[in-house]
Nucleic acid binder design. Structure first.
Lengths: 227, 227
DNA sequence: ATATGTGAACCATTTCACAGCA
DNA sequence: TGCTGTGAAATGGTTCACATAT
């Protein structure tokens, strides 16, 4: 039984909550932006205002990856960005293949937010011959039957599945056989994959359904940081 | 300071973890599907296999909303679906307005997964005059300046923001002034909104970045249910 | 015998408090 | 003094175990 993201993730050096990773990736992106605006040094308190996360939480999250700050001073931005990049595995450009060039797939191929974390979509795949050979947002579309061949050439780090629910498991199997180790799945189904494969689900209906529940039956009280 | 989803949500009757709500919405969708296939009664163990969540967790989640099962028997599917629908606030059709008819916006307007939880997008809005007046996936597109007027007529329950990051806060302000109580935000920025507004963020870059971290530096160990 | 519902135990994350360094 | 890094405490979600109903 393959299974979705655990609540805690361990590397050689550290073991940290999945929620911390989420926050750290966001810190990285937003802190890099701050650096690009010319800022030099920041404290966890300054970051707290910017990111909407408590200073304690920020320090704890950062401490999972190393010691990047100077007591009494704060964090040197250049240094912090470089270290986060390194520790998060974002220091060299990563590639993703996208399977399913429908409306959502096309939107993802053109989504320029991935660039901010040094990830780019290197190829698209679809079963529809009419789409094969086209170039969308600068990315070429191939037939699904050529995934394995393309993966040998492009060496993508992860795959994004944006096909209809009924086709998702089959695509997942193909992708796994092609040597991919991480899958971002937009299809509203539970994918079965070997334990060594990381599967992360983005379920748009569930997100919208949760929000509706909160806004209809929830009493708005104290709010709090999360995704 | 407006703020993203708390970790716990309280209604008149109950107070439950946000993660439970996520799971419950998913239960609802998948259990309804099971019912439509003709199944009559299920146990939490059966559902566990189907949903990839422990039977204990399922019973606990369901118990937050009420008592829907019969000891020694299981859950009557018709009854369970009806109750979940009711308690989750999904029993009557809900409407969402979508702001930002770019590639992602168009994909969301055509996303038919929302139908499974009785939510439909009732109008699209954009600042681009070329898009105004067009009909995408059966939904008409209006100019952003007409949001308030349209909201008075359409009474949407929630708004979906799919505009570029730089425009998101302004759109958020407009939407809040129009009386919307829940916002699903796809822009990678922290929105500022009054405390009585629920804001849920879907950050595609962060999701992909997390996955990359896990698949590059994470040691694949025991897996576990989540989003 | 079988399966639910739930209080209690357990465990992980967040928050707190402070030692230590600039 | 100001701020980081981190053990320790507190918080809260998940798992366990069992009383209860069929």
């Amino acid at each position: 039984m393959g299974w979705p993201m655990p609540k805690r993730v361990c590397s050689e050096k550290a073991c940290l909550p999945a929620e911390s990773i989420r926050r750290l990736v966001r810190y990285y992106r937003d802190i890099k932006h701050l650096r690009d605006e010319g800022e030099k040094v920041v404290s966890s308190f300054f970051l707290s205002d910017m990111l909407g996360v408590s200073p304690d939480q920020i320090r704890k999250d950062l401490s999972y990856l190393g010691e990047f700050g100077k007591p009494g001073v704060g964090y040197d931005l250049d240094n912090l960005v470089k270290n986060l990049e390194e520790r998060l595995g974002l220091s060299q450009p990563a590639g993703a293949v996208l399977i399913g060039v429908g409306r959502l797939g096309m939107a993802l191929m053109g989504y320029d937010g991935f660039r901010n974390i040094n990830i780019s979509i290197v190829a698209g795949f679809d079963i529809d011959e009419a789409k094969v050979g086209s170039v969308i947002s600068g990315v070429e579309v191939y037939h699904i039957r050529n995934i394995s061949k393309a993966c040998r050439r492009l060496k993508p780090d992860v795959a994004i599945i944006a096909v209809p629910a009924r086709a998702a498991q089959e695509v997942c199997d193909i992708v796994v056989r092609s040597g991919i180790k991480g899958i971002l799945n937009f299809a509203p189904v539970r994918l079965s994959a070997p334990n060594c494969i990381w599967v992360s689900n983005v379920d748009l209906s569930v997100e919208l359904g949760c929000l509706l529940f909160c806004s209809k039956v929830g009493k708005s009280g104290e709010k709090d940081a999360s995704s």
